[in-house]
């Protein structure tokens, strides 16, 4: 079920992110979600795209270091407590959330949550059991 997330190593200095977004813009890469984590020294940009192969190739050609990993993407019910219900499902299953970020589906208007966990399958079955709507890589373009 999961989605493929691209992580990109960035230096933490003015302009570093801009150089990378230019590469993506020049190659017309359509991003579905974007998140940036940083320390004082370096940062990691995390990106969801429809065509992972193309995005990784253009980044590599521009000398970026990337890694691709699986993450869980799940729709958040648009009601008070919607986020809590998703988080609780993961917590109840005893699964540790390494990090997470949200994005809005431009076409569906819905909010989605991307979760990084050690055991993707376990998290997905815990979420499915609670009736959560999971997103697959193939569905990203339609959101």
């Amino acid at each position: 079920m999961s989605v493929k997330q691209i992580s990109v190593f960035l230096e933490n200095r003015p302009g570093a992110l801009c150089e990378m977004t230019k590469v993506l813009a020049d190659e017309a890469i359509d991003m579905r979600a974007f998140s940036l984590a940083e320390t004082s020294e370096f940062g990691i940009a995390r990106i969801l795209v429809k065509d992972v192969y193309k995005a990784v190739t253009v980044l590599k050609d521009a000398d970026y270091i990337t890694s691709v990993s699986e993450a869980v993407a799940v729709a958040i019910p648009d009601v008070p407590g919607g986020l809590h219900s998703v988080i609780k499902a993961v917590a109840d299953a005893g699964i540790n959330l390494e990090y997470m970020y949200c994005f809005l589906g431009g076409k569906s208007g819905k909010a989605f949550l991307v979760c990084k966990v050690a055991d993707v399958a376990a998290a997905e079955s815990a979420l499915s059991a609670k009736g959560a709507v999971l997103v697959e890589q193939d569905e990203l373009a339609e959101l």
Binding site: F9, T39, F42, I44, I65, T66, S69, E98, K116
Partner: peptide, 18 residues
């Protein structure tokens, strides 16, 4: 310089390498 072999999505691991 960072190398592809050293890079991981995990901030903690990178910090440990540093």
């Amino acid at each position: 310089e960072m190398t592809p072999e050293m890079f991981t999505d995990n901030m903690g691991e990178i910090a440990a390498r540093q």
